[in-house]
Design a protein around this nucleic acid. Structure first.
Length: 266
DNA sequence: ATGACTAAACCTTTTAGA
């Protein structure tokens, strides 16, 4: 089974690429971030025609998330339970019938678009911190209800210096501050693992490259899109990769998809 | 150049992203 996450930076612009990508990578579930669409504008018919059940949660201009799956999900949640938020950043659902024994129920999938944070000390940075604290409190509860859980999306955090093309230039900058990295560690400490780091990976692996300065051509990027799997799933993970190919498109998102593969019968 | 590129709305300019 394969799951994936992709910040598409406008689904209106990127829909043809998403459909093309799904045709080449028929993953079992895909979460999208930055759809930038109100719910009435969501391209449900096109995605269903491609063979996916769809859950979506958006707003005008900014943010917006979606959960696409081969099989419909249950228990859909939008945003962080108990955290009043104007911004559409989280969508979750449960895939039933996953796994051989089924003692723990289905597979919980949480797709998240973490706040950017703009700059340390800014109001948006403070919001990012509050949001991450609320997310952690909620995910802790979700893990109790769903031991098999995947939290994936655009975290807007480069967890370590090896996730940054120029750690000196980025030191203390947004995505690389100690506070953000501490939040990432605290999320992992709930009982999650960074699937990408379960495997030997090429050095200088990034999931985002600035549109400016020929950053993709020069491979100057950050690894800020992540897939965290719960401890109960860790032994089932067989691969985790970043697909750079869509970033080579003529009109690409600035992010690339990240894919995780799980053994269905451990 | 608190810039560069892309996207969307407040659209010939601003805001936000990262």
């Amino acid at each position: 089974m394969q799951l994936a996450t992709w910040n598409v930076n406008s689904l209106a612009v990127r829909l043809p690429q998403v459909l093309e990508w799904l045709a080449a990578h028929p993953v079992d579930a895909l979460v999208l971030q930055e759809t930038k669409l109100t719910d009435d504008k969501f391209p449900r018919a096109e995605l269903e025609a491609a063979g996916y059940a769809v859950q979506w949660f958006g707003q005008k201009t900014y943010n917006g998330v979606a959960l696409l799956s081969r099989e419909p999900v249950q228990d859909v949640a939008k945003n962080i339970f108990g955290f009043a938020d104007e911004q559409a950043r989280v969508i979750a659902g449960t895939l039933g019938g996953w796994g051989a024994t089924g003692t723990a129920g289905g597979l919980r999938i949480i797709g998240a678009y973490f706040p950017n944070g703009q700059a340390p000390g800014s109001e948006k940075f403070a919001y990012k911190m509050q949001w991450m604290q609320a997310l952690r409190d909620w995910v802790r509860q979700e893990l109790i209800a769903h031991p098999r859980l995947v939290l994936m999306g655009d975290f807007n955090i480069a967890p370590e210096d090896r996730d940054v093309h120029d750690p000196v230039a980025w030191a203390g900058q947004i995505h690389c501050t100690d506070e953000e990295r501490e939040h990432f560690r605290q999320l992992v400490a709930l009982g999650l693992v960074d699937a990408f780091r379960l495997f030997e990976q090429p050095p200088k692996s990034w999931s985002w490259w600035d549109y400016r300065n020929l950053a993709f051509r020069k491979n100057q990027g950050l690894r800020i899109d992540h897939i965290l799997v719960s401890e109960a799933l860790k032994a089932s993970v067989t691969a985790c990769t970043i697909d750079k190919l869509p970033r080579k498109n003529e009109r690409p998102s600035d992010h690339a998809p990240v894919i995780v593969e799980l053994r269905t019968q451990p």
